[in-house]
Design a protein around this nucleic acid. Structure first.
Length: 200
DNA sequence: GAGATGATTAGCT
DNA sequence: GCTAATCATCTCC
């Protein structure tokens, strides 16, 4: 069953990031349903987080999505090539978001292979935020869309990982953020082959 | 209107 | 390990 609207209103974005590990993310785009369970996330904690687009309360046409009430998507283009998929959390006016960095695919593997131009299923089919978005068919058309829509949603299927199998560490690719780059806002399943970068 | 840059990835050495 | 690819967005004029 889909996670309820209230799940996304939690003001503690770091706690939600950890809780999302093991939840199932689905998309239904162009008539094709694809999905899998989340194995890696990163929290971006609003105006006080130097690594976040919304640091210092910055509002632009792009980042205004982050200020919406929790429960919508935030998709943007990075490096001119890669779409990144985030989930906005907390209440309106609090620009909290969670970057989904990797999932373990369970549904629509053949569709993902087509989208990724791959002949066989390899771990890197959904490893890393850019790859994951492409495999699931996520594009900027999906920006600011409700997570309870029929296009994109998250389900709780009862899968959980014990604390000792979920690791926390510094976020990836945010070296420019100074001390905030060291915050343990990244969560991942230890040893999972779909987790990007260090996974031990 | 122009110039700089990034929450990355794939491919080559 | 290193680096090119590639463009929307942001910042200043």
């Amino acid at each position: 069953m889909k996670l309820p609207e209230a799940y996304y209103h939690n003001p503690d974005v770091v706690a939600v990031s950890k809780d999302l590990i093991g939840k199932y993310l689905f998309t239904s785009i162009d008539g094709e349903t694809t999905g899998g369970y989340i194995v890696e996330t990163e929290a971006y904690a609003g105006v006080i987080d130097r690594a976040s687009h919304s640091f210092g309360g910055k509002v632009t046409p792009r980042t205004k999505t982050m200020y919406m009430q929790g429960g919508v998507s935030y998709v943007y283009l990075c490096y001119g090539i890669h779409e990144m998929f985030n989930i906005v959390t907390s209440v309106e006016g609090q620009p909290h978001a969670i970057l989904i960095r990797a999932i373990q695919p369970t549904h629509g593997l053949d569709i993902m292979m087509l989208r990724r131009n791959m002949e066989t299923v390899k771990p890197n089919i959904t490893k890393g935020p850019g790859s994951l978005a492409k495999a699931l068919g996520i594009s900027r058309k999906i920006n600011a869309l409700s997570m309870l829509s029929d296009i994109i949603w998250i389900e709780d299927r009862g899968l959980t990982f014990p604390d000792e199998e979920v690791a926390a560490g510094p976020r990836i690719g945010v070296d420019y953020a100074g001390e905030d780059a060291l915050l343990p806002y990244r969560f991942y399943v230890k040893g999972n082959i779909y987790v990007s970068k260090p996974n031990k």
